[in-house]
Design a protein around this nucleic acid. Structure first.
Lengths: 144, 144
DNA sequence: CGGAATCCTTTTTGATACTG
DNA sequence: CAGTATCAAAAAGGATTCCG
């Protein structure tokens, strides 16, 4: 991925690694680099569906089985930097940190939901295609 | 990414690296792992917009500045395996290979177009948010 | 509690060279 | 032309430890 959500990007405005020699780093690519980031779109989904819109870190983690706190933290920072989630810290003695989607983040949920819907509808077909491809490969190995 | 589109995946049906101990590897995640793959969604876009629906490898490459032929090849293989693109080989002496979207692949373009549209509409906001975040960071460094 | 920092491993990507 | 193979670099991800 071009932009790194995990690392606090030392040179935030240096768009391409070696500069934008080629494509103008189209917004779509940049966005997909972000939402492709393993946990990003899940955070958006979970927050979009959260009923009290604000969710605490630990609770968020509980709702996303498999995230390490490092990745969740990095993902949330990245989303906050992008203005998609808002962070609120209660200055209590063990601090309580709440996250929620901004209006911008919420608006992203719509197109993502479309992708989700497509995935749920068509992944079986993709799986079938994969099995078919595997079989053909096996056939080619058998034919002698 | 969980599934590797570049490498011909030695164990195609082993969904999770350590098994699906947690989430059932929801279809959405699996799909996003694929379309997050740097070039996948661009191939879908380019092929969806191609007027003769079929495009040759070299032409495809020309339309996607920055792809290495290795990655384009890997991406196309992955998409073909998933049943999203069809491959047609003319058995001429230098072979001509054409790619086109399958109906399934074409149907994926719709949700992806929604994401693209969102990106083009809102990336300026995201950029603004990033600049704001950078400034705050700079401020925090200046205050002594 | 919510992280930040560090270390280490796996995956991904790109350059380059070679082939049917 | 359309790849494959190989190698090296980089990025992502996870585990662990430490801190306010």
């Amino acid at each position: 991925m071009t932009s790194s959500p995990a690392a606090p990007d030392p040179a935030p405005h240096a768009v391409g690694a070696r500069g934008d020699l080629f494509d103008p780093l189209c917004p779509t690519r940049r966005l997909l680099d972000r939402i492709g980031t393993k946990w990003t779109s899940m955070v958006v989904k979970v927050l979009a569906e959260a009923d009290p819109a604000e969710v605490r870190f630990a609770e968020l983690r509980r709702r996303m089985p498999g995230v390490s706190q490092k990745m969740l933290s990095a993902t949330l920072q990245s989303l906050a930097r992008d203005g998609l989630v808002a962070r609120r810290v209660e200055p209590t003695v063990p601090p309580r940190v709440h996250y929620r989607l901004t209006p911008l983040g919420l608006s992203l949920d719509a197109p993502l939901a479309a992708v989700r819907a497509w995935a749920e509808q068509h992944m079986p077909e993709i799986d079938r295609a994969n099995r078919a491809a595997d079989e053909s490969a096996a056939d080619r190995n058998d034919e002698q």
